[in-house]
Amino acid sequence: MTKLVGSFLVLLGAIFLFSAGLGMLRMPDAFTRIQAGTKASTLGNMLVLIGVAFYHPDWSLKLLIVVYFVLLTNPISSHALGRAAHAIRIPMTRATVTDALRDARDTDRSAS
């Protein structure tokens, strides 16, 4: 039974990782690609690792450390990448209507 739960979690994680890969291929610009890749791969990684923990309960602590590491690094690195892409003015897709970061920077500049 625990193996069934573990397998299901790994499968679910694989589906999320697949959707991350699909998003990287199909999304129109850098920013949408980053958000598709980050969110889906963070969750997918965590689900796969938790699923493995059901298979090998004695690995749980190590897997927890790996989950912590993924949770810490993946969003921060994507955040930095996204900011960098915005700073060098990578063009956005036409469907994007708001740019909160630019608006915030403009208000900062006009205030000072």
Partner: peptide, 18 residues
């Protein structure tokens, strides 16, 4: 030069000892 954000600096500070 755009300074790095608080998130990046604090994240690095947490990751460095690890």
């Amino acid at each position: 030069i755009v300074p790095s954000t608080e998130l990046v600096r604090n994240g690095a500070a947490i990751l460095f000892p690890l």
